[in-house]
Simulated scan of single mutants.
Amino acid sequence: MNVLVTGGAGFIASHLVDELIALGHAVHVVDNLSTGREENLNPHAVLHRMDIRDDRLADVFREVKPEAVFHHAAQIDVQTSLKQPLLDAEINILGTIAILEQCRDYGVRKLIYASSAAVYGTPDYLGVDEKHPVRPLSFYGISKHTPEHYIQAFAALCGLDYTILRYANVYGIRQDPKGEGGVISIFVDKLLRGERPLIFGNGEQTRDFIYVKDIVRANLAALTQGSGGLYNVSWNEQTSVNRLLDVMCGLSGRDFNPVYGPARPGDIEHSRLDNQAALDGLGWKPVYPLEEGLKETLAYYERLYSRQAM
């Protein structure tokens, strides 16, 4: 199958590209490499180096004629969205519309869209299911939710099939600790450099951490299942930031010695996504407990940092 992956040189989507190629698909990647890295990209993938808002996007769709599109290209940093809301909206909303127009014009069978738990805002209850009210606290949450409506409208008007996946807090190998880095990649970087990690707030805020390999498995399931569906992709478990760092310190043999700073605007206190709909609709369930995913992630970066020190 001809498959196109936007943002395919980034953290999550580069792992997806690897698995698609391993399964025998012909994979094309659209990525401007603003945050993605060319070294992440599988050598068997074809890279089209451009922004998803580029007028040349039509040429890529005309050439590739993809049957399926995995849309991961995005502005993903909450704090950037608060400082630059126009940029955030241009990339996440207008960029997605540009992808949808090409899907319509070139007969794409299915779009799989990477959305976010940020769409829900402060939870009314835990675990948050797909029926929970959508009240995003940040512009990022708004710009990830708005495309869901466009996708559903394009589906109704043009017959485009789709699956929307709302990710919990994703972590794993290739996550960049700089810029949009998640808390785990930032902690890994600090611990391996012998620096004290910074925790915003008191550290008792909780998140639902999901390993990148489980995210990839959900995307692959969505190729053939979950037609017209919207699914949380999560472990369905709460872990406090303090507990997270404690586990990481234990696995890496480092001391638990963080610096605490003020809580950040736009951050919620607690999060846990119910994943029952994905279990039912995608035939998917997570298989990497937090400690196992952390072991793999730490081992990878320990090898990487050791090579860099040589």
Rank of each mutant, 00 (worst) to 15 (best):
V78H: 06
R109D: 10
G127E: 05
I76A: 15
H149P: 00
F139I: 12
V64D: 00
P85K: 08
E101K: 14
L82E: 15
A73G: 02
E148Q: 08
A89H: 13
P85M: 04
A155I: 06
E101N: 13
I112C: 06
Q102P: 07
T163K: 11
A117I: 03
Y167W: 12
S143L: 00
T146E: 11
L82R: 14
F154G: 00
G107V: 02
H132K: 00
L160V: 07
D77E: 15
I99G: 01
I91V: 15
V78N: 06
L157K: 15
I97Q: 11
S138P: 03
V119A: 11
L94E: 09
D105Q: 14
G107K: 06
G141I: 03
Q152E: 15
I93D: 02
P66M: 00
L165Y: 05
I142K: 10
A114I: 03
S116M: 10
L165V: 08
Y140H: 12
V119T: 15
Y125T: 12
K110G: 01
H149I: 07
C158K: 12
F154E: 02
P85C: 09
A156C: 08
P133V: 07
G141D: 07
A89N: 01
L137P: 00
L137C: 09
D77I: 03
R104D: 12
K83W: 04
H132P: 05
H145L: 14
I91H: 07
A118E: 15
S138N: 07
A68K: 13
A118D: 15
I164S: 06
Q79T: 12
